[in-house]
Design a protein around this nucleic acid. Structure first.
Lengths: 158, 158
DNA sequence: CCCAAATCAATTGTGCACAACTTGACTGTG
DNA sequence: CACAGTCAAGTTGTGCACAATTGATTTGGG
């Protein structure tokens, strides 16, 4: 029992202690899934967080503030400010100080940004296919994950 | 229908389009869970990836090479080299070129590293509790996630 | 009205992740 | 033995994440 590693299907060596931990499964799955996104999003010139920001902005008629985006994505200005600056540099969004409250910055898609968002339409299906799971499994997985996230955020407030 | 955002329990605003995507659920849950780890691991002076490396090393009698660690954790030398350098700087591991094959670097826990690993014993329970899920749910979640990860890695080889 | 507290975005600094490249070491074939 | 090809680890550069701080603005209580 001096060797606790196992070798399975994919040729990947993994560790039993590691495999027992949900956290590692979550960490590994999250990175594996962004690996699936990467080549697809590369074709659009986007990173995964940038893709998420465009998704949110595309659902709104009006502009979103940085903090509103942050609430949606659970990200702070330290992450979003440079990301938005890059999106602006790429001509996909515009940023301007709110007239009503000069602390706020309003972010909005440009015509080019809206055009790109159209091209994003079939990304979810492509990715879902790559997971190799049935739709029902994906829905169940998503709901469990959302439950975990909400439980954690709820407990943090107390 | 000009506002597609909803407000629920925790006071967090979220977006319907976002919530439909498994990938976002995975991304959000992964970061929420590392948020749970952070304060616990801070007390040990570790980051989450550093904690994972110590977990793997603690399961082995012998030293591990950088690439063996990379296979376990699905990380490359670009991530591991600086991380291991920091662990070495903290006195938790030692690194040395393999005598048999000088391309390889062997990594091993120091006495201090093994002592820290003892103190890591109850981290998983603390974290599992914070997720607010029953053990059976956690096991099911973990297995689904592992399945997703393995499916993705398997498809990437073809 | 005034000012202390709160709010918002940006910045700074640290530490992952990952692609692309470099350097040094091994391996197999002729 | 030579040497092309391969392999391991490290380095460089980009882009998140997140803590902590800064600076500008707004808000609310006295």
């Amino acid at each position: 029992m001096h060797n606790l590693t196992v070798r399975y299907g994919s040729g990947v060596t993994d560790d039993l202690v590691l495999r027992r931990q949900v956290c590692f499964a979550l960490y590994a799955a999250s990175r594996a899934l962004t690996d699936v996104y990467r080549p697809i999003l590369d074709g659009l010139g986007l990173t995964y967080p940038q893709y998420l920001v465009l998704l949110v902005l595309g659902e709104r008629d009006e502009a979103a503030t940085v903090s509103a985006l942050g609430e949606c994505l659970h990200l702070d200005s330290g992450t979003l400010s440079p990301l938005l600056k890059r999106l602006e540099g790429a001509g996909l969004v515009v940023r301007r100080r709110s007239a009503a409250d000069e602390r706020r910055v309003e972010v909005e898609l440009t015509a080019q940004g809206r055009a790109l968002r159209e091209r994003m339409a079939d990304v979810p299906q492509q990715v879902a296919r790559a997971t190799g799971l049935a739709t029902a499994d994906l829905v169940a997985l998503r709901d469990t994950l959302t439950r975990v996230t909400e439980t954690i955020h709820r407990q943090k407030e107390q």
